[in-house]
Computed example of a mutant assay.
Amino acid sequence: MNAQNLLTRYLRPGKLLFGVCFRLSMLFKLPLVVIRTIFIVLTLFFIPLGIVGYLMLLLILHPKTGRSMSYTLMGALVGIPLSYYFQPDVIGHFEGSGNMISYLSNLASTISQYDEYVGNGLEVLVNIFLAMVVCGLAGGAIGYYSTKRKNQKNNE
């Protein structure tokens, strides 16, 4: 693929992946290349921010986000208890028997104990947030593809 062909593909007005940049350019009346450049810069400098931002905007701007959004929210809520598995091993030794239920019921004291002994209680909260993002994205993908499959069956 030569440079002119690549540039033509990158600057075309339609959708390249899911149409998020195109919808944003129409919404804010900005050139498409500016929106795409912003996402590329965000992804290169802040790797999760560009990707997560793009996927979140996909869920918000997609015309049929009802099912996708509900699956995303359910996934994010499921991510809170599953964040136990994203935590360091020492978390299992604080406040109780070291299972998910004791982790959730004593979360505030677990964070303060972790901060006291290890020195970085914010790490526990970051791990909870990451688990919510990962599970939310998985739920959104499930909702998106189930909606897509349902629409294909209705069109047949």
Score class of each variant (00 low, 15 high):
residue 138 A to F: 02
residue 95 E to I: 04
residue 142 I to E: 06
residue 58 L to S: 00
residue 113 Q to Y: 06
residue 116 E to I: 12
residue 1 M to G: 02
residue 62 H to V: 03
residue 136 G to R: 00
residue 16 L to I: 12
residue 114 Y to D: 06
residue 148 K to Y: 05
residue 103 Y to E: 07
residue 133 V to A: 08
residue 81 P to C: 04
residue 150 K to P: 03
residue 9 R to Y: 15
residue 109 S to V: 07
residue 51 I to P: 00
residue 28 F to V: 02
residue 60 I to G: 06
residue 143 G to P: 02
residue 30 L to F: 07
residue 35 I to G: 11
residue 65 T to Y: 05
residue 45 F to C: 08
residue 150 K to D: 14
residue 21 C to Q: 14
residue 131 A to W: 00
residue 71 Y to T: 02
residue 149 R to S: 07
residue 56 M to H: 02
residue 116 E to L: 14
residue 59 L to H: 08
residue 41 V to R: 06
residue 17 L to W: 03
residue 113 Q to R: 14
residue 103 Y to H: 13
residue 145 Y to W: 15
residue 151 N to R: 04
residue 43 T to G: 09
residue 38 I to N: 09
residue 1 M to W: 06
residue 110 T to C: 05
residue 154 N to T: 08
residue 99 N to L: 09
residue 10 Y to D: 10
residue 61 L to R: 04
residue 128 I to V: 06
residue 96 G to L: 02
residue 154 N to W: 12
residue 32 L to S: 11
residue 54 Y to V: 02
residue 39 F to I: 06
residue 52 V to K: 07
residue 128 I to T: 03
residue 36 R to S: 05
residue 60 I to M: 11
residue 7 L to K: 14
residue 81 P to N: 12
residue 4 Q to M: 11
residue 86 F to R: 05
residue 150 K to H: 12
residue 67 R to S: 00
residue 135 C to L: 13
residue 149 R to I: 15
residue 110 T to R: 12
residue 80 I to A: 09
residue 25 S to Y: 02
residue 109 S to Q: 07
residue 154 N to G: 00
residue 79 G to K: 01
residue 90 V to P: 03
residue 125 L to G: 01
residue 137 L to Q: 11
residue 5 N to M: 15
residue 123 E to H: 11
residue 120 N to D: 14
residue 33 V to M: 07
residue 92 G to F: 08
residue 51 I to W: 11
residue 99 N to H: 12
residue 111 I to N: 04
residue 110 T to I: 15
residue 98 G to H: 03
residue 110 T to F: 05
residue 53 G to E: 05
residue 52 V to Y: 11
residue 67 R to I: 04
residue 4 Q to E: 10
residue 15 K to W: 14
residue 13 P to W: 08
residue 115 D to I: 03
residue 72 T to D: 01
residue 45 F to H: 10
residue 90 V to C: 10
residue 97 S to I: 08
residue 114 Y to T: 04
residue 86 F to W: 06
residue 30 L to C: 13
residue 64 K to P: 04
residue 153 K to M: 10
residue 42 L to C: 13
residue 5 N to V: 13
residue 23 R to E: 15
residue 45 F to M: 05
residue 38 I to H: 07
residue 5 N to G: 00
residue 74 M to V: 13
residue 22 F to V: 11
residue 118 V to C: 00
residue 152 Q to G: 00
residue 42 L to A: 14
residue 137 L to T: 01
residue 113 Q to E: 04
residue 149 R to W: 13
residue 75 G to S: 01
residue 9 R to E: 13
residue 90 V to A: 15
residue 58 L to M: 03
residue 154 N to Y: 11
residue 141 A to K: 01
residue 20 V to M: 06
residue 94 F to M: 09
residue 104 L to P: 15
residue 131 A to Q: 05
residue 30 L to N: 01
residue 156 E to S: 02
